[in-house]
Design a binder for these strands. Structure first.
Lengths: 265, 265
DNA sequence: CAGCAACATTGTACGAGGTACACTGTACAT
DNA sequence: ATGTACAGTGTACCTCGTACAATGTTGCTG
């Protein structure tokens, strides 16, 4: 097994982290001039993560890329935890928010899902970071404001708006995480899905009793055949998004002045 | 930031892993008798993970608990990756599967969700393991067979059955992961949600411009007040499950002989 | 302008974790 | 009886985050 470190945000000193996120620095620097900047550190770390995954982001590696010694980074960032917070908030800040004001709610929700999918496309590592305490930075704020507003005016109360958004984002992140996992598995096992199945098939055929698991055998075969692999991220996303929209419909379309579900695809 | 290692299943030699999962050992042992057993190793590792989280499961720790030296474990298990595979499959095998044959589909699906929630309640670490290539062991097979059969006879085709199940399980796992993350965050930051907010509030008030983020401010406050915290796992689960059932309804209730959605709660 | 204090940067080093490797001893098959 | 396969052990290597102390630089204060 390969250990893929899953990091967590906001594990450092909260106040210090907030100051960093909002670049709230009191500009009274007395010592030597700084050779780098927080943004440079965050940018380089993000580039590494984008290209080689979060594992590749080590303090040593980031430092090397910047031409300094590892410990130098600690004058810019209290620790790796805060660096990840900064990376994530910067990634949020870089998202393209499409304006869907006035459009049917299904299209608005779909746009949100797509924006987040695009984020995870650009920064797959972002999906693997746990955000139970999100980085309360400017990027996160803009994102939250934008995304909530997509649910505004649909007759939902405030708590429901948050619920819907959380539910949607959880789905997109779960999809992205699965896709990212599948990609990593594929990459560092030097074995694609087909090879993996072919390697497993003979022994599996011996120990697996088709009579004991009739439904599993039938459905597993059908699903595998349908998308040439055990897991098809795109298919799971498309299926899930349709379920989500239908799931929201009961909450939204019952409301007056949302025009029914005539926008259903 | 605290690094919580997120492990991955099935990263070792697939054939060897399968043999271990199915306990497919050719019994020709010539040397000294073994002092332990695979099951003992798996059991101890699971106990540690249950009690202290997946981080606490190190080869050294497991060995110590068993009264042997770390390297001894490697005669039972090729590596840590395979140990986690075995732990996960054993956890699956230990699940209680309630028989809901003949019951309305909403109840059947709800039962599935509850069974999996119970799994993650018992073994929170299980939610944090990525299973893009699931351990193809007996526990997983039984689980898959049981869970698929809940979707059987509802008029879904084979691929749809798999889609629905994958979607449902993804949701429950995402919830459990979020809950587990929240719990870890709470635990090892020595700071509960309220303290965290109180620590952040003053600075946040200074940098956060309510006028710039009106919806975020309003909804965030409402959501926070509704469930005394930024994130309420139980609430998110309940909300999400209702959405899932409504989302499935379009797929299932349109079919004949499912009795409409009279079972809707 | 001198000198001090704050700060940036660096080198060294520790501890945790997975596991490779060589060695010792045991028990079964011949 | 003996050799071989295998269980268990001790040592050691590598990677990673980061603590600590030393060195050098800058700007503020007198």
């Amino acid at each position: 097994m390969v250990v893929v470190p899953t990091e967590r945000t906001s594990a450092g000193d909260p106040i210090r982290t907030l100051q960093l996120l909002w670049r709230d620095s009191t500009e009274r620097r007395r010592g030597p001039r700084r050779g780098l900047s927080i943004d440079a550190v965050v940018r380089v770390a993000t580039d590494i993560a984008d290209a080689e995954g979060l594992d590749a982001v080590t303090m040593r590696r980031v430092a090397q890329e910047l031409g300094v010694v590892p410990m130098t980074l600690y004058t810019y960032v209290p620790g790796k935890a805060e660096l990840l917070d900064l990376m994530l908030d910067a990634a949020y800040a870089g998202m393209v928010h499409t304006d869907t004001t006035g459009q049917p709610w299904r299209r608005r929700v779909t746009a949100l899902a797509e924006e987040n999918t695009a984020l995870f496309d650009l920064h797959p590592w972002a999906a693997t970071i746990s955000t139970s305490r999100p980085p309360l930075g400017p990027g996160q704020m803009m994102k939250y404001e934008h995304e909530l507003s997509a649910f505004d005016g649909l007759g939902l109360d405030d708590v429901e708006m948050d619920d819907c958004l959380t539910y949607l984002l959880g789905f997109v992140q779960a999809c992205a995480r699965a896709a990212s996992d599948a990609h990593t598995a594929h990459h560092d096992s030097a074995m694609n899905d087909q090879q993996w199945w072919e390697a497993n098939a003979p022994l599996l055929a011996r120990v697996f009793d088709e009579k004991a698991y009739p439904t599993a055998a039938r459905v597993g075969a059908a699903a595998g055949a349908a998308h040439g692999s055990a897991y098809d991220p795109d298919h799971a996303y498309a299926f899930g998004l349709r379920r989500i929209l239908d799931g929201f419909a009961g909450l939204i379309d019952d409301q007056p002045d949302n025009g029914g579900d005539s926008t259903r695809t």
